[in-house]
Design a protein around this nucleic acid. Sequence first.
DNA 1: TTTTGAGTTGTTCGA
DNA 2: GTCGAACAACTCAAA
Length: 498
Amino acid sequence: MNSENERPIVVWFRRDLRIDDHAALWHASRTGAPIIPLFIIDSELIATLPSDGAAFDFQAGALRELEDKLRLLGGKLLLLRGMVVDVHERIIRQFQPSALYFNRDYEPYALQRDERIGSLYRSREIDVRTFKDSVLLEPDEVLTGEGKPYVVFTPYANAWRKLPIPVPFGTPRRIVVPRFASEAIPGARELGKAVRIAEPIFRGGSGEAKKRWKWFLSHGLAGYEQGRDLPSIDGTSRMSGYLRFGTISVRKMWEDLAQAKCEMTDANSRGHRTNPTIRNRQSAIEKFSSELIWREFYTAVLFHFPRVVESNYRQEFDAMPWRINRKALDAWKEGRTGFPLVDAGMRQLNRTGWMHNRVRMVVASFLTKDLMHDWRAGARYFEEKLLDIDTAANNGGWQWAASTGVDPKPLRIFNPRLQAERYDPQGDYIRQYIPELRDVPARYIHAPHEMPPLVQEEAGCIIGKHYPAPIVDHRSASAAYKEQFMKLKRGSVTRVEE
DNA sequence: TTTTGAGTTGTTCGA
DNA sequence: GTCGAACAACTCAAA
């Protein structure tokens, strides 16, 4: 059989830049037909994306590695720039493909795009096959007894855990590709995007992803339960960036976790039950697994309630008198609020394109509760800066912080100073990102404005000159927020009675 | 339909 | 400094 003369299958890569355990590529390779591995630089979309140039350099790195890996399989990446519809029309004309394969994406924008492209192929009588790949369980696989989407995490997770989880497919051994000319992979510069993130935390593709995952399994998990909340140490998995571009398979991650759990159980049955290291590891695995379930939960929430991108999940908050305060917002963005942990977090974000999860909660609570600023401005800034940005998780996180989201708990206001004292007691993290506070004694590190003038001088940090005094008083700000919140709740009750 | 139990990651107060 | 209770009481999901 001369498979090169067969009509090819187009495998459209999007946020799944790997060859290992890639659902669409695997299934296409099983047919034996030639494959066109396609990636489109969507010029229309890029123009509207707020992302920092560093995100495009990160993507370029992942694409370069995908290109290399495909070459090892005997294949080649077809990279084209243009409007998505135009590119696909060109592909259909040029290659007369027998089918289009791709992995499903559940974001509102992507669903719309994929619907359009799917119809285009079907209208030319070309087969379209889509696959579950970026999640273990899709939004409509986890539903309540009534067939409705869950809007509370715990019952969602309980239902999730009862369902069968897919195992990895594997990696194709070899693929055949037709002849074609590809464009070069563009980085930020070629796309006309300025790079402001000077020290990006993520780079590379599936190789880096695998390396980090291996490290986390063998070294990171042990201290994960305690370490995950301490921003001064490398205590989290930092897999978010790789999951964003799909340079690692979540099925493989889950399998590795299950494997690690088995090893623990074996060790237990051999009589090491009392070993605290093993107990730690076991609960760390549980904890980390539930973080992956959170990822799927928010994916499902966004899928079922696409309006949350732009509006409050709890609609009574539409009446919330959020402030739009340019000056305060800029101070927050630039890390000049006078609250060291908040400022350190924002500067970590600006410098590295990543922020520790604990600190994300703190800065989000600060913007929405202390500054009473509309959460959408914060979410938009994260979209711009985070290299691991995932719309579903970002939106879920922001609405959680703003108390407008699916979490039904009553009002929650973080105290930025208390959070700092608890999770960065010595101020190591603060000092790492705020050099002007480097020599401030630990006693004052969480409230530098309380330093007596002499101490300020000794520390080389004059408040108001080198580092700002707090731009709000937390006590009165949170009282003001609370008042608005209660008014809102009362207001919603009246409306229901009407 | 009604009832019951429970809710990611908190904070403050007072003993 | 530590610890437990109170906060305020709503919404969701399942029995």
